[in-house]
Design a protein around this nucleic acid. Structure first.
Length: 447
RNA sequence: GCGGGUGUCGUAUAACGGCCAUUAUGCAACCUUCCCAAGGUUGAGAAGAGGGUUCGACUCCCUUCACCCGCUCCA
C-alpha cells in the first residue's frame, strides 16, 4: 500500500536534508570530490544522535537483560558462511530488462519470456546481480581469496552460537545481540540515508524452544513498539504488516514488517521474523559441528528456534529526525511580528546536545562565571558554549539542533548567583541558583 | 544498471555568450548589560569535475560525477 507523496512531504524531506547539512548532522560522503553514490557521512551532531540510539539500544537490550549477551564480529567472514546461509545463492539474481517498458524482471520468473508488465518480448541479455560486496583477502588479487563483506550482521550470531554456549552457559531462552555495519549492492538505493550500500544494523537472535516461539515473538514485538514510542515516533505513522503465507521466506512461520510513512512513501523501518531452526541447521550441516543445545533438565539435545528482531540504525536516525522536525510561528523582538521557528523536538535522551550555556555577552565578567558552569555540566551532559550574536539568535540555533535546555548567564548572575534555564518546547524561562543546576538539568532531562 | 529531471557562496536563490556573478539568510569580528533570528560597521564565502566550440563559456556542445523522481528492495 503506497501513499502518494504530497508537496509538503517533499518539502519535509528537503528541509531535513538541508538542515542535516547546514547544522552538521549528515554530509554527502566524499563531498569535495563530488561525492560517492549513496554514501553519507555523519557529522558532529549526527554522530551524537546515532550514538545515543546505539547506546540506548545496547543498554536496554543487552546490559539490562540477563538473557541477552552481545558480540562484535568481523565484517569479513569465511565465504562458507554465506553458502550455508543461502546468501550467495539468493543474493545472486539473474535479471533482465524489458526493452519496451524498461521494467526489471527476474529471468527465472518469466513465463514464456513475456514481460509481466507490458507483454513485451524483447529483453536485454541476462545479468547476474550479486548483492554481496566482494573483495580480496591477500596481497595480490590473483592469488588472493575472494571474500564478501557481510550483507547482514545476523549470521555472526549463528556462527558464534557454539562459542557462546561453551563460554556463557546460557539457558533458553537467550539472545545474542550485535550492532554493526553491513554492506549490500542495492539495485535501487536512495532516499537520503534510507537505503545505502553501507549501512548499520542492530540485531538480536533470540533462541527459544520451538513450542514457545509465539510467546517470544509477541514479547519482541512489544519491545519494538515500546522502543519506537521512546524514539518519539507517532503511532499513526507506523504500520505493523504481517507478511502473508507465500510471501514469507519458506522457513518462517511469521514475519512482521514494521513500516513507517516516510515522505517518499510507506516503507520498511524494522523487521521481526521467526526463523525456525533454519540457520542453525544449515550451519550445523555445512560446518559439521554439533550446534545443538542440551536441555539442563532432560539432557535432551536439540536445535533452538530463533526469533529475530532487527533494527536499522540509519533509518532510526532518519525517522527520529523526521518526527522531531517542527516549524512554529514564534514571536520576534519586533512588536506584533512573528517568524518561523524551526525546532527539532527530540526526546531529551536522543538530543545530540543536552544543554547550551549562553552568557548574555562576551564580557569577561560573564565568561568567568559561564565557563565553569560549562565545565561542570559537560562532565555529565553533552554541552555547548555559545557567546556569539544576540541571545534570541542563539536560542533559535539551539532549537534547530534540538537542544532541550539553554542556560543563560546575565549580569544579575554576578549578584544573585542564579541563571535562567529555558525549555526548548515551551520556551518558558525560570531563574534558578547556579548550585542547583546539575540537579535541575538531571531532573528535566529525565536522566 | 535503464529512462526522465537537476547541479551557482554553508543554506536558499537571480541574471547574463563580454563590467569585480545578484539577493536574502547564515557565518566571522567589533560596538551596543542584547532574554526569543534587534540595530549599526566591517569582512570572508559559489558556477560538481574534465574536455570542446569561441577573441571570450556559469551560460552552447560532449564526457563524467552526484542528487531527485520512476523500475520486486525489506535495516
Amino acid at each position: 500500500m503506497k501513499k502518494n507523496s504530497t508537496v509538503a512531504n517533499t518539502d519535509l524531506m528537503q528541509n531535513i536534508t538541508s538542515l542535516a547539512k547546514r547544522r552538521g548532522f549528515i554530509f554527502a560522503g566524499s563531498d569535495i570530490y563530488g561525492g560517492l553514490a549513496n554514501s553519507w557521512d555523519y557529522g558532529p551532531l549526527g554522530v551524537e544522535l546515532k550514538n545515543n540510539i546505539k547506546q540506548e539500544w545496547w543498554r536496554r537490550f543487552v546490559q539490562q537483560r540477563a538473557d541477552v549477551v552481545g558480540i562484535d564480529a568481523a565484517l569479513l567472514m569465511n565465504p562458507k558462511v554465506w553458502e550455508a546461509s543461502g546468501h550467495l545463492a539468493s543474493f545472486t539474481d539473474p535479471l533482465v530488462e524489458c526493452k519496451t517498458c524498461h521494467a526489471r524482471l527476474r529471468e527465472d520468473q518469466l513465463i514464456d519470456r513475456t514481460c509481466l508488465n507490458c507483454k513485451g518480448k524483447d529483453f536485454t541479455p541476462t545479468r547476474q546481480f550479486n548483492m554481496m560486496l566482494k573483495t580480496y583477502l591477500g596481497p595480490s588479487e590473483e592469488s588472493a581469496n575472494t571474500v564478501y563483506f557481510r550483507p547482514e550482521t545476523a549470521q555472526a550470531m549463528f556462527v558464534n552460537f557454539k562459542n557462546i554456549l561453551d563460554t556463557n552457559r546460557p539457558k533458553l531462552p537467550f539472545g545474542i545481540a550485535q550492532q554493526g555495519k553491513a554492506f549490500r549492492n542495492e539495485i535501487t538505493p536512495g532516499n537520503f540515508v534510507f537505503r545505502m550500500r553501507e549501512f548499520e544494523q542492530m540485531e538480536i537472535e533470540y533462541f527459544v524452544k520451538e513450542r514457545e516461539w509465539e510467546k517470544y515473538f509477541e514479547h519482541w514485538l512489544g519491545e519494538m513498539k515500546q522502543w519506537l514510542k521512546d524514539l518519539g515516533v507517532s503511532e499513526k505513522k507506523l504500520h505493523y504488516v504481517d507478511i502473508p503465507d507465500g510471501e514469507r521466506a519458506h522457513y518462517s512461520k511469521r514475519t512482521v514488517d514494521i513500516e513507517y510513512e516516510y515522505p517518499f512513501g510507506q516503507k520498511e523501518l524494522y523487521g521481526l521474523a521467526y526463523r525456525g531452526d533454519f540457520d542453525l541447521k544449515n550451519h550445523m550441516q555445512a560446518s559439521g559441528q554439533d550446534l545443538r543445545y542440551t536441555d539442563t533438565e532432560t539432557q535432551e539435545k536439540f536445535l533452538p528456534h530463533v526469533i529475530e528482531p532487527t533494527w536499522g540504525v540509519d533509518r532510526s536516525v532518519l525517522v527520529a529526525m523526521l518526527e522531531a522536525y517542527h516549524e512554529e510561528d514564534a514571536p520576534t523582538a519586533e512588536e506584533g511580528e512573528s517568524a518561523k521557528r524551526v525546532v527539532m523536538k527530540f526526546p531529551a535522551w536522543l538530543a545530540p546536545v543536552k544543554v547550551a550555556i549562553l552568557p548574555l555577552s562576551k564580557k569577561e565578567e560573564l565568561s568567568k562565571v559561564a565557563k565553569p558552569i560549562f565545565e561542570t555540566l559537560s562532565k555529565q551532559f553533552v554541552c555547548e558554549y555559545d557567546e556569539t550574536q544576540s541571545i534570541g539568535k542563539r536560542y533559535r540555533r539551539q532549537d534547530e539542533i534540538g537542544t532541550p535546555l539553554c542556560i543563560t548567564v546575565d549580569f544579575e548572575t554576578l549578584q544573585d548567583n542564579a541563571v535562567t534555564i529555558r525549555d526548548r518546547d515551551t520556551m518558558k524561562q525560570e531563574r534558578i541558583l547556579v548550585k542547583d543546576l546539575a540537579g535541575e538539568a538531571t531532573k528535566r532531562l529525565h536522566v
